[in-house]
Design a protein around this nucleic acid. Sequence first.
DNA 1: CGCGGCTTTGATCCTTGTCAACTACAGTGG
DNA 2: CCACTGTAGTTGACAAGGATCAAAGCCGCG
Lengths: 244, 244
Amino acid sequence: MGNVLARKLWNAGRLDPEDLQRLDEVISNPFPVDARKDLIQQGDDPEHVHLVLSGMVCRYKLMPDGRRAIVALMLPGDICDLHVAILGRMDHNLGTLTDCSVVRIPRATIEELLENHPRIRRALFWSTLVDEAILREWLVNMGRRRADKQMAHLFCEVHARLCAVNHMQDALLPLTQEELADILGVSTVHAQRVLSQLRAQGLVTVQDSRVAVPDVERLRDFAQFEVDYLHLEQGEGGRQHHTK
Amino acid sequence: MGNVLARKLWNAGRLDPEDLQRLDEVISNPFPVDARKDLIQQGDDPEHVHLVLSGMVCRYKLMPDGRRAIVALMLPGDICDLHVAILGRMDHNLGTLTDCSVVRIPRATIEELLENHPRIRRALFWSTLVDEAILREWLVNMGRRRADKQMAHLFCEVHARLCAVNHMQDALLPLTQEELADILGVSTVHAQRVLSQLRAQGLVTVQDSRVAVPDVERLRDFAQFEVDYLHLEQGEGGRQHHTK
DNA sequence: CGCGGCTTTGATCCTTGTCAACTACAGTGG
DNA sequence: CCACTGTAGTTGACAAGGATCAAAGCCGCG
């Protein structure tokens, strides 16, 4: 249970002590990255994969007209770009949203893990499939929910995912409204309006660009949030247990 | 090169003859399924995985209000639900759009392939990552493109994917307008308007509910379609080669 | 003090949703 | 052969969510 990666992969199924030890070895030399820096860019064919230890990283594409579409958020314990180990070429960019602590894992190490450590391999496969499930939910969220529900849903997801890796103390969303808009696919102005509406309803609170959720259950009701898709078998995904 | 699965996985990298033979063994007892039938439903924890040999299958979620959100299309050669082999529980439904020919592969067989056949394992991982890339593109498509470009983009993608498995003779999209709307996340009425607009511009033609593309390049220009994300290394993804 | 970035608010326009009527066509039973 | 039904496609009118443009407020920082 020593590191975030192990804690995250824990959801995928049992890992043996030797697996955990191997994971500890892999996570060495973390280094800090400032907010709003690119880790890698579209077209790169880099030699390593990134693991987030702390902070928040996003996957984004740039549109021909210059707009930015954020298509995924990576939280502590998330591996950003297993792709490159298999697919080779990046078809999108990776950038930090906040100050982060990141570990670079050489491609060869990933290959070796996949080759020789069945349980870790399975766990990595699992995490890829969960990423896919999240993407599906985002797609539904974006396609058929109005912006207010959509935003609330996003907050619920980030909350649950942070809880699952024991980082609930992290600011829920340390984002500018522009970043929020780039995630939701709406204009900044509209993101602003929707956010202040949620605030007015008491569903979220904001302090220096940080969103906090006073009552998760209420927000979940509003957003019609179902944790299922995160596949957090063991953890409770942030449900407020033992309340009262 | 005997079967669609092999042809599809070919893109992932070399497979040895023994791999191909193993894949041939796996693809046995194909059976037909009528259009608009469910293969599996949300919550199921089924004992096998589905491979499409012909026809078109979709992955969809049902919203609380009864609307349907189609989040993926599976074409010949696509494995529909590798998830269940790893994640166990389905968080969505799988249904046919057209008459299909489908193969059921037992979960245990998948496990065995992943365990003992490194190249096949890698290829399956690859196909999962490509699915994810497609999902990201859909997300961008849905979030920031207007319905006309979005629809054109969808047509381009299906065209390219069909070409990649040598099924260009298939009707591009044998869909009702309701199904089209469920994919794009718009109302049927709007889907109708947009489709007839594309038709009026000569970008697509329609004959008994089948969409055809007279000039792929022109449609791609209109949709700002970039094949990259499909990761079709070897094939040309349907680019009209040798034209004049 | 002034500048630049982010937030907030207002006014207007456009894309898309909703409601509703109408057409076309295939299947069914008389 | 013809009414009767159901389903899918088509079209119009209107409403609403969200985009865009513009301006003003806030705040940290040199």
